[in-house]
Design a protein around this nucleic acid. Sequence first.
RNA 1: GUGGGCGUAGCUCAGUUGGCAGAGCUCCGGAUUGUGAUUCCGGCGGUCGUGGGUUCAAGCCCCAUCGUCCACCCCA
Length: 424
Amino acid sequence: MARKIQAIRGMNDILPDQSSVWLYLEKTVADVVKSYGYQQIRFPIVENTDLFKRGVGETTDIVEKEMYTFNDRNGESLTLRPEGTASCVRAADQAGLLFNQTQRLWYMGPMFRYERPQKGRYRQFHQIGVESFGMGTADIDAELIILSARLWQKLGLLGQVELQLNTIGLASEREAYKAALVDYLTQFKDQLDEDSQRRLGTNPLRILDSKDEATQSVLKEAPSLEDFIGEESQSHFERLQTILKANGISYVINRRLVRGLDYYGKTVFEWVTSHLGAQATVCAGGRYDGLVEQLGGKPTPAVGFAMGIERLVLLLETLDLIPQSAKFSADVFVVSIGDDAEVASFVLAEKLREVSPNLVILRHCGGGSFKNQMKKADKSEARFTLILGQDEIDQGICQVKDMSTGEQQSHPLHDVVAYLNSKL
RNA sequence: GUGGGCGUAGCUCAGUUGGCAGAGCUCCGGAUUGUGAUUCCGGCGGUCGUGGGUUCAAGCCCCAUCGUCCACCCCA
């Protein structure tokens, strides 16, 4: 036997028993976003490397060490998308969808980051993103959060996920705060943990979530981001909270919440859970008013969020929230004995599919003894098994066996379809 | 990139101080001719992740390597 080739590390196959959960989740999301007037957009998995360098931020970990980047045959540097927002902006702007108008868009698909895999984190992972453009007021921030809450409600996750909210102000306010924070922390540099010392030069805001105790005690006296937030950002944040409260959305304000990607400003939020180990965030987003312009478009306000499908699937499984209707099973199993019956069973199965297109009708293929076929019928968990042999063909009938009761009765061939249709 | 756990049949896993490679499930066949889930009998299925080393003898001990899981970092 030839040596087997395995899937790439961190890139998983979604096997049949899992794919039904994915379909259920995707369908639920598609229905919810549609009900809020969002339309799907699809864009390529590969983009010019510069799109992500400029969009995500040159000094972020994603760009510095996590991208799958390679040269095209003509020498151009291409990258497998590590996230969706930059591509979404590029696609929408390229098509002129962002000019003097508002857009409500969503997308879904694989993203790629070169990281060590662990629970809920993979090198190829899947996100569903929801983005809005052309609206700078807090109402649209609220709409997106309310939409996500409705999705949790539909999935049975409300109460299992917690909404964390923060405002990180305007870029200029954040820069001023960063400078103050770095000034302060530099005095205590030797008391900070190793990672935080490094982040002082790269991503100082991240030090705020350090898990190191010594670092946290240094942070107690540090300047607070809140004090640097200007009037505009503050009232935007308050308006958002007013709308959320009126809609019964509960949340906690987490002043330490800063997003990893450079493009965020004003509102940031995360939905977190305690059921998934270290990967607590199942959905995260915020406002990114500067991104469109940064990518060469006209200044356009925007807000959006992305959720991790793997994490949501894991969460649904962990909490046993997959409805029975989402699971795959057959309704009718068709077995036959003999050549004539085989042909007739095809015709019967097709007639049934014609009349009841939503039923799952599994017609046995591949030969095997009658006993064997009945075993397959049992495994399929079909409610009814149709049995056709030479005797039945001769008499123009079909045996219909109710697999749960074991009861079996014969029906004229021309009545079987109507009978099953009434029973299922 | 760093740290720790685990790699034995398709799946879940036993395997004693180093002494003939095992179970359950699945799959296939049989227990009266054309009837499934329970039961009984039989069968298929393995380079013990891979490569070295120690030993009369290695699934077990040592080294390396690959894979996987969890955590750090970072993030959905």
